[in-house]
């Protein structure tokens, strides 16, 4: 619908009349017979809960990570292969980075899934965007986990 502050031009003969009304704008994603039935799973609830809990943990993990990497001990200039190798020699930092990787990726992916559900109107758009999102998130998690566990400081 346009939003001009004018009345429609009366000189042109209208294409619509009582027997042939203009099409009205349907509500997006109205419920039809093809709409999937209720799932009766708790997926959405666990998703919602995960966002809250992972958010709390991520505040500590990410802020701590940024502090260590960018502020303490000379800031960003200290980061090099040796620095990373030294940190990952300790299982504590391995676990820190692993948990941060998983929580951040899943938290972000779930947030984007919500946004796609909200704003991608057509079923096909939604399918493709979500497919892309899940592929990217899965790839990030797999690659990151692989690196953390198979990291070899003596690589040459």
């Amino acid at each position: 619908m346009s939003a001009e502050t004018t009345t429609p031009a009366n000189d042109a003969v209208s294409a619509y009349d009582v027997d042939h009304p203009a099409p009205v704008i349907e509500a997006p994603r109205a419920r039809t017979r093809k709409t999937p039935k209720t799932t009766r799973t708790n997926f959405e609830m666990y998703g919602w809960l995960f966002m809250r809990l992972s958010g709390i943990v991520l505040v500590v993990l990410v802020l701590g990570h940024l502090l260590i990497q960018l502020v303490l001990d000379g800031g960003v200039t200290k980061i090099g292969f040796a620095f990373v190798a030294g940190r990952w020699a300790s299982p504590f930092w391995q676990a820190w980075d692993l948990i941060m990787l998983w929580l951040a990726t899943l938290h972000g992916a779930n947030g984007l899934r919500t946004i796609i559900n909200d704003y991608a109107e057509r079923d096909n758009t939604r399918l493709w965007l979500k497919g892309l999102l899940y592929t990217a998130a899965g790839f990030t998690i797999v690659l990151g986990t692989l690196v953390i566990f198979t990291f070899d400081p003596n690589i040459r």
């Binding site: 346009s2 939003a3 004018t6 009345t7 429609p8 009349d17 203009a22 009205v24």
Partner: peptide, 12 residues
Amino acid sequence: FNPEVAAESYWE
């Protein structure tokens, strides 16, 4: 908006 006259809405 009157679908029997025009497909567009307008402000009056």
